[in-house]
Nucleic acid binder design. Sequence first.
DNA 1: GAGTGGTCTAGACCACGAG
DNA 2: TCGTGGTCTAGACCACTCA
Lengths: 223, 223
Amino acid sequence: MPSLRHTIADDLRSQIATGSLKAGERLPSEPRLATAYKVSTPTLRNALALLQAEGLIEKIHGKGNFVRRPVHRLTYTGGRLTPDADLHVTIRITNLRARGGLIPLLKVPSRTPLTEFLCLTHQGESPHSLAYIYVPRDLAPVELSWCRTGLAATQETVTARLPTPEEASTLQISSMLAVLAITRVSSDTTGRVVEAGLLVLPGDRSNALFTTHHTTEERETEG
Amino acid sequence: MPSLRHTIADDLRSQIATGSLKAGERLPSEPRLATAYKVSTPTLRNALALLQAEGLIEKIHGKGNFVRRPVHRLTYTGGRLTPDADLHVTIRITNLRARGGLIPLLKVPSRTPLTEFLCLTHQGESPHSLAYIYVPRDLAPVELSWCRTGLAATQETVTARLPTPEEASTLQISSMLAVLAITRVSSDTTGRVVEAGLLVLPGDRSNALFTTHHTTEERETEG
DNA sequence: GAGTGGTCTAGACCACGAG
DNA sequence: TCGTGGTCTAGACCACTCA
């Protein structure tokens, strides 16, 4: 027995697929849709939440629900953010000292001087990703990993979680929309951690892409 | 102005952190908690949904909400599932022919004979991951990638999305709990796609780990 | 000010688990 | 049978956008 919200989401999804709802078009208001489908507004909003998580629609407070244009997902590529034609990056630099979870992440003693890069990428008007990147301050002149040499390995842990209220408001997404959270640790050839990053990508508009090249040694040990 | 659900979630989270709510313990019923926090039951359930997405509590229909034991996350490692002491795998094998999205994924003509491996891993009693793995049937004897040689590269795309109703019931998770969806394509040294996999990992109990080893050539082109 | 989505309320009814 | 969580209802009130 399928739930009402899935039935409604299926119907709207097929309307988008067939083109009866076109890209960029505004949907009827939530009370109107609720009346049309003969459900309450919370139930209709649950149906829209499913489509939002799939990246098919975008909710804009005070304006309405819109069909997303040819679903353009920002693809995070293991190690660096793919430069995109209309992708803008805003960086805020702060000096601080290692504390809490940063200490094991960067493998540094407590209160080690660090530089924090708060990176916010935009695509057009809307925010697309949020990243906190930490670099030991003695690694000067400080540069982010995607433009530095001497890296040996990058290890990335990916989880799906809900955004903190701060992340939700910064990224202008619903607090019920899951994000991809990526913890990235880059080491140089000596094994020293040269950079740690905490990346937050909205689940409705982001992919993360990882490519593993299997070496001969790996193939032999795998077999 | 923090929302009620976040305030309540923060309070319960600190109770778990300090140990006033112990691992494995059952929380008071949702109506009781709602009364205690002076909110309605839907609001309290929204607060619990936040903790569930963090993997701090587990909801069991008909029994109650429970504090998760030392949060043990299954870690998916790029290319293979980490074998775990108490991890059981159930595999169902089906023969079928390429159609729909499988055709571009495996780069094969329509109706190419394929073998589908439906893998369901359990940890103890509870399901932990779901995977659909496809292999061209002429690659016999069929073996899954983690025990086959000759692989050159594995490419993995990670997204966060809500589960389909079928995935939710198979994995016994809420249909509002985000999952990590991983599309995996493995090629051999000739560039032929030898395996494609669609993996679904519950967001509250799963990580995905990727390690990139930077070769000298990469470092040079990066600089 | 009119219309929109965001949050919350105070219930109802159903499905599941255990005794 | 009883208590639990899962779903849904029919509203209310606030915040935001735009004319």
